[in-house]
């Protein structure tokens, strides 16, 4: 792999997903959901929200209500990942779009 950041990203994604198996708690899920909601709000304010984030949050809440904490944990992690990546997209695109302009 050429890019060290990509490797880091993959490692962190793997770490995140393996945490679900350690036996998550409902509090951890709530914490993830609160962070996801905050990041998603930030993305929406930048007109960069992703359509998948809210459904992940809703599914996580439903899984939690059904007593399926591990599933809720995984869904909450996906909500947080997508929310954070949407904010990151807004930030990097504030400059990156200029490189795509025809004739630039």
């Amino acid at each position: 792999m050429k890019h060290p950041l990509a490797l880091l990203g993959m490692v962190s994604a793997l770490t995140l997903s393996s945490m679900a198996w350690a036996g998550a708690s409902a509090d951890e899920v709530e914490d993830l959901l609160a962070r996801a909601a905050a990041a998603h709000e930030q993305a929406l304010a930048l007109e960069h929200g992703w359509a998948v984030t809210e459904p992940f949050m809703e599914q996580a809440r439903q899984a939690l209500a059904d007593g399926n904490v591990d599933a809720a944990h995984e869904l909450a992690q996906r909500a947080l990942l997508t929310a954070e990546k949407s904010v990151a997209q807004a930030q990097s695109e504030a400059e990156a779009w200029k490189g795509r302009v025809l004739g630039s």
Partner: peptide, 30 residues
Amino acid sequence: DALKAQIFDPRVRNPNTVMPPYGAHGILTD
């Protein structure tokens, strides 16, 4: 692994790619 890296985040090899970053953006689960 090289194929996996390409599907995970094709922007690493080409920042202007039109291909979605299937792993980095959580489009697919691990």
